[in-house]
Each structure stands twice: as C-alpha cells, then as structure tokens.
Amino acid sequence: MRRAVLLEFRKMRRLRTLPIVLVMVVAVAALSSASLFAGSTQTTFEDPAAHPWAGLLLSYTLMAAMTSPILAAVLASRQTDIEHAGTGWTLASIAGFTPGTLCRAKLAALSGILLAAVLIQTLLVVGAGMLAGIRVPLDAGPWIGYTLLLFLVDVALVALHIWLAATVENQLISVGVGMLGAFLAVFTLLAPGAAFWIAPWGAYALISHVAQTAGEVGYVTPPYPWIIGLLALVGITFTLATRRFNRLER
C-alpha cells in the first residue's frame, strides 16, 4: 500500500494538484477574513462578549462549506481520470495492484495534501484575525475541533468522489456533483434542520462550532455522534465499494 501511495504522488506531477489547492486555500482564507476589515466588525475586536473569534469562525465555516465540496471533487476527479485516460487500471492490475488498492492509495495521497491544506487555511484565517487586530484571546478549542472535523469531512467527500470518478468515466459528472454539493452545503448552513437529510454535504453544517441566534454569534457543540456515524458510514461504504472494484471486469 505504501508503494501505491508513493506512486500516486508521482502521478500528481503536472496535474497541477498543488497549485489548485494553494489557490483554494488562499481564496478561502481571503474570503473568510474579508469582513475583518469592515469598520463595524473592528469595533468588536476588544470586546470578549462580542465573540470576535466566533464571528470569524462562522465566516470561515461558510466559506469552507462553499468551496470544500468543489475542491474535493476536482482533486478526486483529476487524480482518478488519469487511470481512465491512460489505461492505468489495466496497467496496475497486471502489475498486481488492484483497482481497489489504487482508489485507496489515491485517497491516502490526497488526504495528506488536504491535511496540510486545511491546517494552512486555518492558520491563515487565524493569522488574518490577529493581523486585523483582534485583541481577545483565541478560543483554541472550537478552532482546533472545527479544523480537525473539516479535514475529516473533506477526506470523506474525496473518498466519495474517487468512487464516483472511478465508476463514471465522464468527469463532468463528478465535478458537477461537487458544485451541487457546494450549494447544498451552504444551504444546510442557512437551514440547519436540513443538514441531516442532505448527507454528506450537510456534514459541513453539522461540524460547525458556531451558530448565530437572534443576531448573536456564539459557540455550540456539534452533534458528535451524528458526525462520527456519518464518517463511519462513508468509511464502510468506501471500503466495500473499493473491494467491489476488485471484482469488476473492465
């Protein structure tokens, strides 16, 4: 498996994976921090009761929900499409790497990139908050919790998109589903009651550590059992689906 993962990194050359991730990370960080520079926001920077970090986390949550499904779809689609175009499934099979192994290796490789991307993204947003002048101490717990869950949900989405991209050769479908997913993810943030029903994109709303009630932004505890259940379900589905790929005759 280690060898298969290293091969995926070799295949990433010229796929522009890193530039795409970098652009998305900077864009999310920039859009999330845009409100920091509004005059009305800056008045709350020294008031702990106004929860300026929670406001920034809410903005980050919204931007991440808007962009992460598209990023997951694009990364998974590009990394999987090369196997269709280059007869890679057969090449790997006759070298002893099953299609299922290939899919799992792709997930592992992309997960490594996503981990770095989500961490940098969060650090950029926090850094922007500090640069803008938030004097209230950072509420590290919700930020760390959200970053970790955002990474896990991104990995789950990439897994589903790898499965989709491997199953349907036309990658417009995979990317199209990702764009629809972005819309649904934002929708569930605005209508939280729907989040459970629009899985897996509803997960971007479920992992939110902040909520706005009557104009006030405050921290909330996400429904961990639901999130763990959803992630476990995706994990089991991906494992079974990739095992099934090994039995498929192309």
Binding site: K11, R14, L15, I82, T87, T90, I94
Partner: peptide, 11 residues
Amino acid sequence: MIEAPPGYGHL
C-alpha cells in the same frame, strides 16, 4: 499490453 497501449499522457 491489452486493448490500448497504457501511458499517462501528462507524464
């Protein structure tokens, strides 16, 4: 070599 020649086009 089965059906089509393999090879990743971007490499």
